[in-house]
């Protein structure tokens, strides 16, 4: 398979990249590692005359601790983030989640920003980052806005990004003491069939906050309302409530049938993985309770 002809542009600032994309209109597309875009172009699913390479844009690089969060440049590769001590310190579950994205070759060149912007429905980072309440900084080199990850996706392969606007940075809050995070996935192929991420906060053995995100089964990550049943549960009662939340979450999602499985099969997976993720998040939170 060959790629259709195109021209690669290599801007060296966010402003230039953004302006170029705006000028090119529908003929241009941003590219970084290309692990998703080049594949789609090879398969004839997308065609562009101009690729705007973001690898030389310095604003998209780096990992910085900022008070109680970590700021991650959208152009950082999965591989670079897997080994970042700053991220490991603030959000211990994140390197483990990234270390299982696709395969080692995709992680060498694929970026966190590329993964989010391509908005493939089967995404570990999208699910995980929604659960940990990460915020995205979108910008064009002169203006910027902040969007919570769970409001970034409009559906499969669709985001709130305006033409010429770029994802610059992902801000991930550090996990405080008493809060537990868990990320679970099942994958047979490169992309996960189901992804569930949970975040729970305990105060004196009672659940005071709980957040649940089910990914990879619908067009975009979903946040089942049923998670609210966990609030107020204490150590003696939460395992029963976790089962209720799992059953209700599975009933509430309407999975899309695809190569990873039928809708009913995925619904069954959701129930199992919600239960496991919540159990694990609670165990992680308990481990740090004083």
């Amino acid at each position: 398979m060959k790629l259709p002809p195109f021209e690669v542009h290599r801007p060296s600032s966010l402003y230039d990249a953004s302006r170029l994309l705006r000028d090119l209109g529908g003929d241009g597309v941003p590219i970084n590692g290309g692990t998703e875009l080049l594949l789609a172009m090879k398969l004839g699913l997308a065609q562009y005359d101009h690729l705007v390479d973001l690898k030389r844009v310095p604003e998209l690089r780096g990992v910085r601790p900022i008070s109680t969060s970590v700021s991650i440049g959208a152009g950082m590769t999965h591989r670079e983030l897997e080994g970042s001590p700053v991220i490991a310190e603030a959000v211990g579950e994140m390197p483990r989640m990234l270390a299982e994205v696709a395969n080692v070759r995709v992680r060498s060149v694929g970026t966190i920003g590329g993964n989010l912007c391509f908005a493939d429905p089967h995404s570990d980072p999208a699910t995980f980052l929604s659960a940990v309440e990460a915020t995205l900084v979108l910008g064009d080199g002169s203006t910027s806005r902040r969007v919570p990850v769970d409001q970034f996706f409009l559906g499969a392969y669709e985001t709130v990004l305006e033409h010429g606007e770029l994802l610059v940075e992902v801000t991930v809050p550090a996990v405080p003491v008493g809060t537990g995070i868990a990320h679970m996935r099942m994958k047979v192929h490169e992309r996960p069939a189901v992804t569930v991420a949970a975040k729970v906060t305990l105060e004196r053995d009672t659940i005071v906050r709980a957040r649940l995100v089910v990914g990879s089964v619908c067009g975009a990550p979903v946040l089942p309302q049923a998670i609210d049943k966990l609030i107020g549960a204490s150590r003696g009662t939460w395992s029963e409530r976790v089962r209720e939340v799992a059953a209700a979450s599975a009933a509430a999602v309407a999975p899309v049938a695809d190569a990873e499985g039928s809708s009913r099969y995925k619904q069954a997976l959701v129930e199992v993985f919600v239960r496991r993720a919540l159990d694990a998040a609670l165990a992680n939170a308990s481990g740090f309770t004083r």
Partner: peptide, 27 residues
């Protein structure tokens, strides 16, 4: 496979494995 899945086309770029089937030569 030509779709980054099988690994057969792996080469090392700056010491890291990449799928040469989905990597631009100009990069």
């Amino acid at each position: 496979c030509e779709v980054e899945v099988c690994g057969s086309c792996t080469v090392l770029v700056d010491g890291l494995p990449v799928s040469s089937c989905c990597y631009l030569a100009c990069d």
